[in-house]
């Protein structure tokens, strides 16, 4: 039983690490601001869930698990909000989606 939980948590952690890494790669390689943001924010959410649930399985029922749940809930609330605010700020100052000008608009 314990080893099954271990295996599951390792799988989750590994998948989470992969998601996080792919997100970093996307944020570096994709061509314009909105696509980069897309890569970063989506993988952030998925990687966060996978990694934190993976650690939670290792922690078992303890104070640490409850803190991890709190961290997960907070991150799932704040991270998309931050992405929204960022996209909105960009749109507000005239960075157009799908426009190559986006890359050059150094304010």
């Amino acid at each position: 039983m314990q080893s099954a939980v271990d295996v599951l948590s390792w799988i989750l952690l590994a998948a989470g690490g992969a998601f996080v890494f792919v997100g970093g790669l996307g944020a570096l390689r994709l061509p314009d601001f909105y696509t980069r943001m897309h890569a970063a924010s989506l993988t952030d959410g998925m990687g966060t869930i996978l990694i934190l649930v993976g650690i939670m399985l290792q922690a078992g029922w303890s104070l640490a698990a409850i803190k991890l749940i709190a961290i997960l809930v907070c991150l799932l609330l704040t991270s998309p909000t931050a992405s929204y605010a960022l996209a909105n700020a960009a749109l507000l100052s005239g960075v157009e989606p799908g426009n190559s000008r986006a890359g050059k608009a150094e304010n």
Binding site: C74, L77, T78, P80, T81, Y84, A85, N88
Partner: peptide
């Protein structure tokens, strides 16, 4: 402030007490 931005407003209001 950001009164006209619904998402930050709702999430922020929710988080301030915490």
């Amino acid at each position: 402030g950001l009164r006209h931005h619904l998402i930050p407003k709702v999430v922020g209001r929710l988080l301030i007490p915490f």
